[in-house]
């Protein structure tokens, strides 16, 4: 397999608080993404999971190059993207190759655009298509997403949830991207519709040779759709590996609690303790303490003074815990 995307020690920090006086030291910073390295191979689906506030969305914005990295490098198709400022990248050729599908297409599509307008917009802006070529490409994308052509003239409020989701996907695949970033694409849908959208995504991946980064709260959906899964906690990767293995036998105590919290149809609940409380603050965190320390059921004193590195385990798995394995 060829490597499509590579992140090397990527960090993103946002300054917070009021502007300081020159002698009052550096401002406080939110460590939204901290030292993240990951790869996406051609044709692979990588799941990104974690609680709200763990840095998933910031990481996604760095990958789609809507934000500039503070540190680290991003390589896409052997080209370093992290050195191109986000404003310049908006007009870059690679822009069309990284596309995004948002959570609720009803909210993310301009309500005054018809389905056809919504799908045509990125084609017009990124590829400069006009006239018949544009119409042909819009129809092609709609058909690939199972969107009946007679619905193309409708506005978002005239479409059902499933149809809107298809418009959102058609809009993203129109430019023939190579990497699709999906941010909770089925969160707003009923289960019966969710199934059809998940199957569509799986079909498109095979037909078009796409790679996916799939951000989701729903671990069950990630388990079914993803080859590999990356678990984040407070800006850092705490565990990664093949999806099936990670969910069946989590190495990191955070992943264990996360998996145990998912309701099961058989009604059985695991005896793994609940994760109580909230994550600690991401503002200027102690660089020498495990981010999970204090909330972790395992944690000992060592976790408060020594940040556990991401260690490799059998079966291409990684976990950042002193006690994993």
């Amino acid at each position: 397999m060829t490597r499509l995307l590579e992140l090397e020690n990527v960090s993103k920090r946002f300054p917070v608080g009021k502007a300081r006086l020159p002698w009052s030291g550096p401002p406080s910073r939110v460590h939204a993404v901290d030292d993240v390295s990951l790869t996406v191979e051609q044709g692979e689906t990588v799941g990104l999971v974690g609680e709200s506030g763990c840095g998933k969305s910031t990481l996604v914005r760095l990958i789609t190059r809507l934000l500039d990295v503070t540190e680290g490098k991003i390589w896409f198709d052997r080209r370093e993207l992290s050195e191109i400022p986000a404003r310049v990248f908006a007009r870059d050729d690679a822009r069309a190759h990284i596309q995004m599908v948002f959570q609720d297409a009803g909210e993310s599509i301009n309500p005054r655009f018809t389905a056809a307008d919504a799908i045509a917009d990125p084609l017009r802006r990124l590829l400069g298509l006009r006239g018949d070529a544009l119409h042909a490409r819009v129809r092609e994308a709609a058909l690939q997403c199972g969107l009946p052509l007679e619905l193309l003239g409708r506005f978002p409020h005239q479409l059902s949830g499933g149809q809107r989701a298809r418009v959102g996907i058609a809009r993203a695949i129109g430019t023939h991207p190579r990497l699709l970033v999906l941010d909770e694409p089925t969160a707003a849908l009923d289960v019966s519709v969710q199934v059809t959208v998940l199957k569509l995504l799986d079909q498109l991946k095979q037909d078009l040779g796409l790679s996916y980064i799939f951000v989701s709260h729903d671990l069950n959906v990630v388990r079914l759709l993803c080859d590999r899964v990356v678990v984040m906690y407070l800006g850092r990767i705490v565990e990664s590996g093949p999806a099936q293995a990670v969910f069946e036998n989590p190495l990191h105590p955070y992943t264990r609690s996360l998996v145990a919290a998912v309701p099961r149809l058989d009604g059985l609940r695991s005896d793994i303790p609940r994760l109580n409380g909230d994550p600690r603050s991401p503002i200027d965190p102690d660089p020498n303490a495990c981010r999970f320390h204090g909330r972790c059921p395992v944690g000992v004193d060592r976790c408060g003074v020594e940040m556990p590195p991401l260690r490799a385990f059998d079966g291409e798995r990684h976990a950042a815990c002193h006690f994993a394995g």
Binding site: L198, N220, V221
Partner: peptide
């Protein structure tokens, strides 16, 4: 959950990702 009698209940269960072993096993 074990013995649904109404076809819609059975359909809902078959569409829930929790139980399915693979994407192919899911039914809408």
């Amino acid at each position: 959950l074990a013995h649904p009698r109404h076809p819609y209940t059975a359909g809902l269960i078959a569409a829930t990702p929790t139980a399915a072993g693979s994407l192919d096993a899911l039914r809408s």
